[in-house]
C-alpha cells in the first residue's frame, strides 16, 4: 500500500448535508471512519448510500457541513479509489484500462507492467490481458474495475454495490477479491442491498434511511438485533415506506 507512512484516515464527516434544490438527500450526517474494519452501508433505495460514498470520495461536495481527512488533498486523492455499481470500462484493452489508472496516479512506466500483471492475476483476468474491456461479461468487467482499483494500492476503497446485477457465482468471486484487498490492509467502505453479503463481509454496519444515519454498530451486534426500529423492520424484509404512524405521518423524523 502506498502512503502507509502518512495515513489519510481518519475520515470525518461533520454535520454533512447534501441537497438538490429543496430536496435534502443527506441530512446532518456526522460520523468517522478509522483504519481497520470493513464497513457496509445498508438501507433501502433512496437512503443516500451511494451519495454518502460519493461525498466521502470527493466526487460531490456537501451542501453544508464538512468532510475532513487526516492528510492533505493531494495525498487523499492518490490514496483512495472507488468502484462503481456499473463498471465503467475505457474503450481499450483490459491491460490498458489498468495502465491508464496507474499512469494517472504517476506510477513510473517501468513499474506499471508488474502492477498490471499482479492485479490482473489476483482477479483471474491475466489470460484476457489484450481483450478489449467492452467485450467482457459484466462480472469480468466488475473484476477488472476491482483490479484497476487494486493496482492503485489505495488505503481506502469505496465500493458502490459492487455485486449488483451479478449472478451468485460472480458475486462469490467479487466478494473473495474484496476480502483479499481488505486483507492487504485496505480500508473497505461499501454499500449493498444484499443483506447476506453484508453479513458475510461486514465488520461494522451503517444503516441509512432517507438520508439519515439511524444506526451504526458492529456487524454481529447489528444482525443480532438492531436498536433502531426501522433497521429492525428492514432486516425483517418489511417495506419501510409502509411504516406510517397516526394520520399517515412517517414514523421517522423527516424533513
Amino acid at each position: 500500500m502506498e502512503n502507509m507512512n502518512t495515513s489519510i484516515l481518519p475520515l470525518a464527516l461533520n454535520n454533512v448535508s447534501f441537497q438538490i434544490g429543496e430536496m435534502r438527500l443527506i441530512k446532518d450526517m456526522t460520523c468517522e471512519f478509522n483504519t481497520g474494519p470493513c464497513t457496509t452501508v445498508i438501507g433501502p433505495n433512496g437512503a443516500g448510500k451511494s451519495l454518502l460514498l460519493r461525498l466521502c470520495h470527493g466526487l460531490i461536495l456537501p451542501s453544508s457541513g464538512n468532510i475532513t481527512w487526516q492528510a492533505d488533498e493531494a495525498a487523499v486523492t492518490t490514496a483512495q479509489a472507488m468502484v462503481f455499481q456499473r463498471p465503467i470500462m475505457l474503450r481499450r484493452t483490459v491491460a490498458a484500462n489498468v495502465d491508464y489508472a496507474l499512469k494517472l496516479r504517476g506510477v513510473p512506466r517501468n513499474k506499471r507492467q508488474d502492477r498490471i500483471n499482479s492485479a490482473l492475476s489476483q482477479v483471474g483476468l491475466k489470460r484476457l490481458l489484450d481483450t478489449p474491456a467492452h467485450v467482457l461479461s459484466v462480472g469480468e468487467q466488475q473484476k477488472l474495475a476491482l483490479a484497476r482499483a487494486w493496482a492503485l494500492k489505495p488505503e481506502v476503497l469505496f465500493l458502490d454495490e459492487p455485486t449488483a446485477s451479478l449472478d451468485p457465482a460472480a458475486t462469490h468471486d467479487v466478494e473473495e477479491i474484496i476480502q483479499a484487498i481488505h486483507n492487504e490492509g485496505t480500508r473497505i467502505i461499501m454499500t449493498t442491498h444484499d443483506l447476506g453479503q453484508a453479513r458475510r463481509m461486514a465488520d461494522e454496519v451503517m444503516f441509512l434511511h432517507r438520508g439519515r444515519l439511524l444506526e451504526r454498530a458492529a456487524a454481529k451486534e447489528f444482525f443480532a438485533g438492531p436498536k433502531n426500529d426501522l433497521a429492525q423492520a428492514f432486516l425483517q424484509g418489511e417495506l419501510l415506506w409502509w411504516r406510517l404512524g397516526k394520520d399517515n405521518r412517517r414514523l421517522e423524523n423527516d424533513d
Binding site: L59, T78, A81, M82, F84, I88, A101, L104, R105
Partner: peptide
C-alpha cells in the same frame, strides 16, 4: 456522461 465519475475518481482533471 459515461466516463465522468470514473475519470474524476481516478484523478483526471479536464486536461487529462
Amino acid at each position: 456522461t459515461e466516463y465522468e465519475e470514473q475519470l474524476r475518481s481516478l484523478g483526471a482533471g479536464p486536461f487529462r
